[in-house]
Design a protein around this nucleic acid. Structure first.
Lengths: 182, 182
DNA sequence: GTGCTGATGTAGCGATTGCTACACAAGCCA
DNA sequence: TGGCTTGTGTAGCAATCGCTACATCAGCAC
């Protein structure tokens, strides 16, 4: 025996890297296995079936995302909501975050369609982002909890519009809403 | 000959109905053909190849969406931005709109990934929605153009959060942002 | 009639899909 | 030593994928 000792834990990072690059729609067993240095046969052996693999992979990706947010967390807290939004939207242009973003819409689409695993992963990622956003609210903000949810809604709308070529529409909307400095 | 005289124009409505129900991910030629009462052979004959079919179909769906928005357009204009948002989000619970919404995330995912046809359809649908929203702004609104873009951003964010089980997060955000009556 | 064009049915191709059958080798426990 | 569990390779299955080859039939121009 070659004793490569592949397990879910060693497989998941490579699988995640593959779907972050190629998306979930094209994630079939043989390409996934090749990316992870094993065979489709072994993926089924370790995860049971494809659906379980995807579910576990999505959950793992949610923790990856969580870690990426933590790593991105600046040491100093923004002074205003405007600054908070600007900083977060700026971070979205980071290539690592771009990969998450493109994958994110796959996950949203799956969640909206009720595919198993997608909804849970999406909910977890949004909960983490909300928590992170609450910690990023200005210290003197009159309503940090509500404000974080407000900014969250605006940010997600901006990201969506940007994904479909309406980034300028969102930008003008943020200006009109007083959420970006004029 | 049976003279069924199928053309792109007669095919597209049935194809659209199928993807509105089953999504774009599972849209392979044989099920599509069955839904349209023809064969995969004839779909290729009429559209050339699958990619061209999807592109034309997305464009057609964009016009469908446009028509649905027009049909939904109430005769009286909202008096406030709050009322405008409430009415639009309320319309999103219409079953016909729900089908569009679920499909919408497929389109966003494809657009974010750069799939041919997806970006154009998404952009067109958003442009139409923005135009519709501008027409729905209160008559005495101080900044109808900017306000429409602001509401658009907020609405899209709300829809996205709702799609992943964070509808209450968005709702609280709208409240905190003064976009819904307390 | 003859030939051409457009529309359709039947059949099938090679590739890919998720998954399985089977053999086998290493280690563990009795 | 002998069986059992665990991990792995090879091979292949039935289904589905997008697409094509080929024959056929209706209608039209001449």
């Amino acid at each position: 025996m070659v004793q490569t000792q592949l397990s879910r834990e060693t497989l998941l990072p490579k699988l995640a890297a593959h779907v972050l690059e190629h998306g979930l729609g094209q994630a079939s067993l043989r390409p996934l296995a090749k990316a992870a240095g094993t065979s489709d046969r072994m993926l089924i052996y370790h995860f049971g079936n494809k659906q379980a693999l995807i579910t576990e992979l999505l959950s793992y990706i949610a923790t990856l995302y969580s870690g990426a947010l933590d790593a991105m967390l600046g040491d100093k807290r923004p002074a205003t909501r405007q600054e908070c939004i600007a900083r977060i939207l700026g971070a979205g242009s980071d290539p690592a975050m771009q990969a998450f973003l493109v994958l994110w819409w796959d996950i949203v689409a799956g969640a909206a369609r009720g595919l198993p695993g997608y909804g849970a992963a999406a909910e977890e990622m949004m909960a983490k982002q909300l928590e992170w956003l609450e910690g990023q609210m200005p210290e003197d903000d009159p309503d940090p909890a509500g404000g974080a949810r407000y900014l969250m809604t605006v940010i997600e709308g901006t990201l969506m519009l940007s994904a479909v070529g309406h980034g300028d529409t969102a930008h003008q909307g943020l200006l009109a809403g007083g959420l970006l400095p004029a």
